[in-house]
Design a protein around this nucleic acid. Structure first.
Length: 458
RNA sequence: GGCAACGUAGCCAAGUGGUAAGGCAGUGGUCUGCAAAACCACUAUUCACCGGUUCGAAUCCGGUCGUUGCCUCCA
């Protein structure tokens, strides 16, 4: 079992990761609210935590990965009203879109993927417990959590209620005892989705679902609770408050948060309308390129999504592509002794708070070493095998079929290459170049090497 | 206004006490009919700035400036 160090937001520092019991890891990651297509910033969190989950699973931990789908929420209702559709059809459509985007990005399905609407009984039970302990009160539009009564409020985000109040921009609802009290249960207006509850017909508040689900599916304190940096306050702070107030034990031991993706220097956000969807990016870029972009910086560091950044990621992808293409005749073979040092460095980087950027650097060093070797066949075979193994986790390498497949096509290519060879021999470069240019238009690149001409599909 | 994070070459970025990984771009060369790919050489005596601690600091401490974010739904 690898020893992993990770940055725990709750502790405010890196800590050695130790599951509550043995090698069992209950890992909860906040999922999407399904009212729109996800953007590249959303994808950062999902790609990252899927990566971490799989790295752990491949290294001796038994991971149960839980990721909710928020399928009832104000924004979904709003979107449905705009489109004149039912709220549940909107939720269904974007749930499917989310799952498709994830699959294309190479993100595995969670072990458990509960929907908010399927977990309402557990939420009601939790609110009842809070009510018994005096943490709730009811006003005209819903049941609220009494933030002041929970002693540790602010321990995750390192904020005190008084600091927050000083700079508060939130509009104060006169009925609320404190502006930071939040809704556990919202009463429904006519036409809005509604479930029966002891307090009246309504729907759950946003924060309660993660608390209820993690309890229902893990049954105890989580080992890891993860999400984007913007969820620290108030979402995760509120989850902690309600869970710990109700159950008297920690909600999670380790809290992990990824930094944002900015768009040309400013925050990318669905609500600001400057988001770039994964769906649109996948039209022009293979998923590997998007993942290379996402892995290019440490996850706790801000990533700026720019045209240059995408060009950079494309170039990295091409570098790998050229490597596999150049050594396409070399058979992959397992020879760990040749790659041992690189492998240890990659592991050291990943074990130190999942430093994917450092790990990528090692991959490129290995690639460069193969190109530099005078007789690289032995090394390249081992590096190819080694990279492919890591790629089951990273998913950044080009697929196997970079050269044309199919015997007929191959035969045709041989003919064209032969004609061009003859043209060159008789110094008919016009013809030779025409063949090369026309093939290029089809996306087939010719390369003249000392061992003859070869081709690849771009 | 309050609270944070970050600031490493033209760009991206790793490195958190022992003397600057890696990728892209650039320049010169090798190879080529010309290319492509690849290789070789060059490209930060220096890590925003100013002090301090230390034998030694990009790395620790204090201050200054700058960027970004959170304080409202948000990955």
């Amino acid at each position: 079992m690898e020893q992993i160090t990770l940055y725990n937001t709750l502790a405010g520092k890196k800590e050695i990761f130790k599951p509550l019991e043995g090698n069992k890891v209950f890992f909860y990651c906040c999922g999407p609210t399904v009212y729109n297509y996800i953007h590249i910033g959303n994808a950062r969190a999902f790609v990252l935590f899927d990566f971490i989950r799989r790295y752990m699973a491949q290294n001796g931990y038994t991971v149960t990965f839980i990721q909710n789908i928020t399928d009832v929420e104000d924004k979904i209702i709003k979107k449905a009203a705009e489109e004149k559709k039912s709220w549940d059809s909107v939720a269904e459509r974007f749930t499917r879109a989310f799952q498709e985007d994830m699959a294309r990005l190479g993100v595995l399905s969670p072990d458990i993927s509960p929907k908010a609407t399927e977990t309402i009984p557990a939420m009601i039970t939790l609110i009842e417990t809070l009510e018994k302990k005096g943490f709730t009160y009811t006003i005209s539009d819903g049941v609220y959590f009494r933030v002041r009564k929970f002693e540790g409020y602010g321990k995750l985000s390192k904020k005190s209620l008084d600091d927050l109040r000083a700079g508060s921009r939130i509009s104060v609802n006169d009925e609320k005892e404190d502006p930071f009290d939040f809704a556990l249960w919202k009463f429904s207006k006519p036409g809005e989705p509604a479930w029966e509850s002891p307090w009246g017909r309504g729907r759950p508040g946003w924060h309660i679902e993660c608390s209820a689900m993690s309890r229902q599916y893990a049954g105890r304190t989580l080992d890891i609770h993860a999400g984007g940096e913007d969820l620290v306050f108030p979402h995760h702070e509120n989850e902690i408050a309600q869970s710990e107030a109700a159950l008297g034990e920690p909600l999670a031991r380790y809290w992990m948060h990824n930094a944002y993706v900015n768009l040309n220097g400013a925050k990318m956000s669905k609500s600001l309308g400057n988001d770039v969807t994964v769906r649109s990016l996948l039209k022009d870029h293979p998923p590997q390129v998007l993942r290379l972009f996402l892995f290019s910086a440490h996850y706790r560091k801000l990533l700026d999504f720019t045209a240059d950044a995408l060009v950079d990621a494309e170039a990295k992808y091409q570098r790998f592509n050229n490597f596999f293409h150049t050594f396409s005749d070399v058979e992959e073979k397992e020879d760990f002794s040749l790659v041992k040092e690189w492998d240890e460095r990659v592991r050291a980087f990943l074990n130190d708070d999942f430093n994917t950027s450092g790990a990528l650097g090692v991959f490129f060093e290995a690639v460069a070493a193969c190109f530099k070797e005078k007789d690289p066949a032995g090394l390249a075979g081992a590096v190819k095998h080694w990279l492919r193994r890591w790629d089951s986790l990273f998913f950044i390498l080009p697929g196997e079929e970079t050269s044309l497949t199919g015997e007929t096509l191959h035969g045709l290519m041989e003919i064209l290459i032969d004609i061009r060879h003859r043209a060159r021999a008789s110094k008919d470069f016009e013809l030779a170049d025409m063949i090369r240019d026309r093939l290029k238009e089809l996306g087939i690149m010719l390369e003249d090497t000392p061992d003859g001409t070869r081709y690849k599909k771009r």
